[in-house]
Computed example of a mutant assay.
Amino acid sequence: MLFAAASMGGLGTSVVEGAYGRLWAWRSMAGLSGARAGASAEEVKRQARQSTWFHFAGDADWFCDDNAAVYGIATLSPDSRRIAVLAATDTD
């Protein structure tokens, strides 16, 4: 979901798309999964696969899911001691 949105420049209008969008999505996945800064692709992949991933929706004025212009991702570390959350919207 994150890569699909990033490769098209986000869920609305954006100047970052294609390869740069995927790069930022990859960096987001690294951060969400707890990979160390500067980790190799293999390290990020391993860390991400060991984590538990969730997709969520919210019921708030800024996080309305009526036009598919929002997404929420949460990640639980393999040891269940750390949770990271990314929530984004592209609504006005």
Rank of each mutant, 00 (worst) to 15 (best):
M1K: 10
M1Y: 06
L2P: 00
F3Q: 03
F3T: 04
A4C: 01
S7A: 15
M8D: 14
M8E: 15
G10Q: 11
L11T: 03
G12S: 15
G12M: 08
G12P: 01
G12I: 08
G12Q: 10
T13N: 13
S14A: 07
S14H: 06
V15W: 09
V15Y: 11
V15K: 11
V15R: 12
V16I: 15
V16G: 04
G18H: 09
Y20N: 10
Y20Q: 09
G21P: 05
G21Y: 11
R22F: 04
L23I: 07
W24P: 00
A25K: 01
W26H: 08
R27K: 14
S28E: 14
A30E: 01
G31K: 04
L32A: 04
L32V: 02
S33K: 00
S33Q: 00
G38Q: 10
G38L: 09
G38N: 10
S40E: 02
S40A: 05
E43V: 13
E43Y: 03
R46W: 12
R49E: 15
R49F: 12
Q50R: 03
T52N: 07
T52L: 15
W53C: 00
W53R: 03
F54V: 05
H55T: 15
F56H: 12
A57G: 15
A57K: 14
G58E: 10
A60S: 13
D66H: 12
A69P: 01
V70W: 05
Y71P: 00
G72Y: 03
G72N: 03
A74T: 06
A74K: 02
T75M: 12
T75E: 08
L76W: 05
L76V: 10
S77I: 03
P78E: 10
D79H: 06
S80T: 09
S80M: 11
S80A: 12
R81Y: 05
R82Y: 09
I83H: 03
V85L: 15
L86N: 08
A87D: 14
A88N: 10
T91F: 04
T91G: 12
D92Y: 14
D92K: 12
